[in-house]
Amino acid sequence: MSDADAQSEGDGWGPLSALPGNPLMWVLIGSELAVFGIALIGYCGARLRDPAGFAEAQNHLDRLAGLINTAALLTSGWFAALALDFRREGRRAAARFALAGAAALGVAFLVVKVGEYARLDAAGFNLNSGGFFTVFYLVTGFHALHVVFGLVLIGLVAIFDSVDNFETGTAFWHMVDLIWVVIFPCLVLLR
């Protein structure tokens, strides 16, 4: 495909053509924000009916573990951005190394998250332990699934390491990061 053809194909995305990376990734980012946004609005509605019950349930969460996870995911995002910069400069080995750093911190996030679920479950708090825990497990579990999918994507990008793939893969990873910085304070910190 010539550059002119590629340009013409890019223009076919309308306003999405102005966005960096793959336009379909932006469709995904927009729809994910909408899904998690609706979940948070539902959470607010449920919480307004029983603020005391929700606050009591929230006190069983490990907020410090959540903050450690926030730091892990933010640092992971920084590594992913670094990986993309390296790849654009043609430094493929450095890009893969930075990507491995991003993935390692993603795995650390999941380890902390699974540990938190196990601790809560052992204490008797599961999906059926009232409104707060139903929303908490569904929203954070769905997010954790995105982290798992992101790790798979990072693995694929490390193998098929074109600049375009790097842009798409790291954009997904940053989206996971973005969703976490919104849902974490709402579900865990605010009380």
Binding site: A18, L19, D177, L178, F184, L190
Partner: peptide
């Protein structure tokens, strides 16, 4: 809430590269 909004803005602008698309 303000800290969360600022973090989201930084991710959107710097990491997701939207600084080159101000409208988005």
């Amino acid at each position: 809430v303000v800290a969360a909004a600022l973090k989201a803005r930084i991710i959107l602008s710097r990491y997701l590269g939207l600084s080159c698309a101000p409208g988005a």
